[in-house]
Design a protein around this nucleic acid. Structure first.
Lengths: 280, 280
DNA sequence: CATATTATGTGGATCATACCACAGAACTCT
DNA sequence: AGAGTTCTGTGGTATGATCCACATAATATG
């Protein structure tokens, strides 16, 4: 053996390259192909998963989600399952053919992915580059991009151009994000971004805030709007009593449950809030 | 609300949208989330697999070939070295602090990469998502995004919104792409895209066409503008005599080598503007 | 060379999923 | 409303996968 490369390393390399071709691989198949025991492959996959290179699945492994841009680098990866749940709930509020405004942000970007996968007729008005990009593969979705100055931090545009543009439209539903939520309302760090959010809220019938529970109680530079300006808040778990009370007093609907199927009709409530140790 | 959508259809739609978020899903997880039996989910997945929408895996399903973007990425990989050379030449025309309009397209996207790597003070006005995204990691570049309707094919926006917006500005230099070049001028397949290009040309001091040599002679739906409306054409190798003569007659500068001009294709000396940083 | 370290294989208990057939439920259509 | 079709759940069994502990092989290390 003149190979300077250990058999283990070579095997793992092959596993990775196999995943470049097919979205998933099976432990048993690999074991047979490499002529090693299943247990060995399992340990390989376990190691690669620990190193974050592949994702482990039940019978094998899958390539790591490269579908989305590795943007929002800092905190975007933090609460993925929670954000996905929020995105699913949010998507269930969107009816066929609706006009939807979507603020830029990492959570709203997940929503865009879900909506894009549905590829139903609808119109999306957005100031977020990742949101617009998510719809590049769709046929039936009409996407209107707002003008403005690009903010690398927000990965979207803002400014008076943006606000003025948004105000020319009227939407059925608006989805905004925020970096904090207090009893006064959603808060954000970026003044200009707040103005865009406000413009979207003003011009939409239904006004939905997407926010994960890690942001409860955080107060930032500026309050976007009073709680009463919202019609819905979607989050992964209920906020503390103080905020919840305030919401109840102002007719804001709080969504924390996964959507059942069918938006208008029956919401299937799940027996348990699933806790989902989903290793994928 | 009263959509004639069966539970089964709704469920399958949710499965698909779930696969937009995560590369794989598990039968058991879905069954629990939807409150149906595992067997039902298995039948859903089986059907979706038969229809070619998802791939069945051992414990569930995985998304089908989500690796590549359909339209633009295919073309984007085609003539990479040529496009990079074009992009480097183009970048050398951009002076510090300039106001630059950049049309959407795969070649102009490479230009954006080069400019973004330089990260010098300048203002970019663009209708292309990949162009805007390229500047997300820069500090000193001010990026203005045009409004308009998103075209998946062009990966950018167009429409009267876009044109009207562009016409409000005045730039030092504009870079446009095209899908063909004839003696009449650059041609393109997309009517709306042509209008945006024209608007950019009208509002810029210097008007530069980026086009690789594979597109010479191709005539498409519409002529963007006469050759004489351009001030520069940047390409990888000189066009046939007919076009070259026409260019010479109309004062259009043809760039095929890095400024400084050499022959033999080897001297890629970079100008003072130092495009050396272009590869990260 | 002996010894530590790392890699790999084996067997069995446990759990998850696949598969099949049938029955009841829900829906469709006249 | 009734008959036919489609959809869904249940139970049982077979198969495959996980996990664990330990043994053995391969490789490094002094």
């Amino acid at each position: 053996m003149s190979l300077p490369e250990g058999r283990k390393t070579a095997r793992q390399r092959l596993i990775i390259s196999e995943l470049a071709l097919s979205p998933t691989v099976r432990t048993s198949t690999l074991a047979q192909r490499f002529g090693v025991s299943i247990e060995t492959i399992r340990r390989d996959i376990e190691e690669l998963t620990r190193r974050g290179i592949v994702d482990r699945t039940y019978g094998g492994a899958s390539g790591r989600q490269l579908g989305t841009q590795p943007n929002f680098s800092d905190r975007d990866v933090e609460a993925i399952p929670e954000r996905d749940q929020i995105a699913r709930i949010a998507a269930s509020l969107v009816t066929r053919g609706a006009v939807v405004m979507i603020d830029t942000g990492s959570t709203t970007a997940r929503l865009a992915q879900v909506l894009a996968a549905r590829d139903e007729p609808m119109t999306v008005i957005t100031n977020g580059l990742p949101i617009a990009s998510a719809f590049l593969r769709t046929d039936r979705v009409r996407v209107v991009v707002c003008p403005g100055e690009l903010s690398p931090r927000e990965q979207g545009v803002y400014g008076s151009e943006t606000c003025g543009f948004v105000q020319r439209f009227y939407a059925d539903i608006a989805f905004i994000g925020a970096s904090g939520l207090t009893t006064e309302g959603p808060t954000d760090v970026e003044m200009e971004a707040c103005w865009v959010k406000r413009a979207m809220l003003e011009r939409s019938e239904r006004r939905v805030l997407l926010i994960d529970s890690t942001k409860f109680g955080r107060r930032h530079l500026e309050v976007v709007c009073p709680l009463s300006s919202l019609s819905d808040i979607i989050t992964d778990q209920g906020p503390e009593k103080e905020i919840a009370d305030r919401l109840a007093a102002t007719n804001v609907v709080l969504h924390t449950e996964e959507p059942g199927y069918g938006d208008g009709g029956w919401n299937y409530k799940l027996p348990s809030q699933n806790a989902d140790l989903n290793r994928e």
